[in-house]
Amino acid sequence: MERLRRTYIGRPTPLYCAKRLTEYLGGAKIYLKREDLAHTGAHKINNAIGQALLAKKMNKKRLIAETGAGQHGVATATGAAFVGLECVIYMGTEDMQRQSLNVFRMRLLNAHVEEVPIGSRTLKDAINEALRDWTSNVRTTHYVLGTVFGPHPFPMIVRDFQSVIGKEARSQIRKAEGRLPDSLIACVGGGSNAMGLFDAFLKDDVQMIGVEAGGKGIESGEHAARFAGGSIGILQGTKSYLLQDGNGNILGTHSVAAGLDYAAVGPEHAFLKDSGRIHYTYITDNEALSAFEILSKTEGIIPALESAHAIAETIKRAPTLSKESIIVVNLSGRGDKDVQQVAKIKGIEL
């Protein structure tokens, strides 16, 4: 694993001091953990390669996975190609439309993309279908769950494979600044990139902020902010915060970022919220879209729309802090997959 991280995934990923963004905001010093530079363009590969090796070790013939934004699907298809296993990716119809580039990438990687046309036709339904497939083919198949969710031990498996992000960031910031940062910021869909960054710092005196998708605003009901707008329930083998109605049925969600468009959140996040260790907030579609452009213009880095939520929170927070304080932001993925969608939102024809 150690060797593969170095030679195949391209780790350690850089911790980059975003000087122009820092100057532009005029407050805290901002570092970006460049998971967008990992192979396949997001942090998802850390977990996918780990679980692909695990499946091979368990003599499974076939990998399946769900995907929202398509990054985890691409990562799993890559893992399957890498170890030589068959691969099926479940993806909601709506997500296939808004992330068509990633659909094509998965097919290039020899994966079969199975469309999920039922329910809300997004990530939640793709997970349902993957769990159904797994129930039917459990003897030959390993389910590569992509986030810190689902039945035990998935939340721990995924966290452990992703915790490399925080371990690297911890030693990198020490080397660069001689101390730990004041704050960490990461976006939270299921919550794997956030858990990956936060895990190594949980015992330190470091403030942590998880950013959920505020969609069109909490009042609109069209969002995926489980902490701001949800309550505790049980879904897909996990007890956590959910967006649900009074009868326990799961509500539809909305976010401009497919990877955050999900009705539940990882159970460890729920625990860390209730214990008060981590602060959770949300960012709306419009704030994320504006952050998407600001980072592109100031730093020459096009972030994934998911990661743009973390950037947007940084844009809000940094100017209120002193120049001595340090923020590390997890830039969990790159934005190439989103450019078509952003152009469409802006009414530009490509």
Partner: peptide
């Protein structure tokens, strides 16, 4: 009992 995400059920019962 109707539920939005019937994981153990196939398409007939989900519909």
């Amino acid at each position: 009992v109707p539920f939005s995400d019937p994981l153990a059920d196939g398409p007939t019962i989900q519909r």
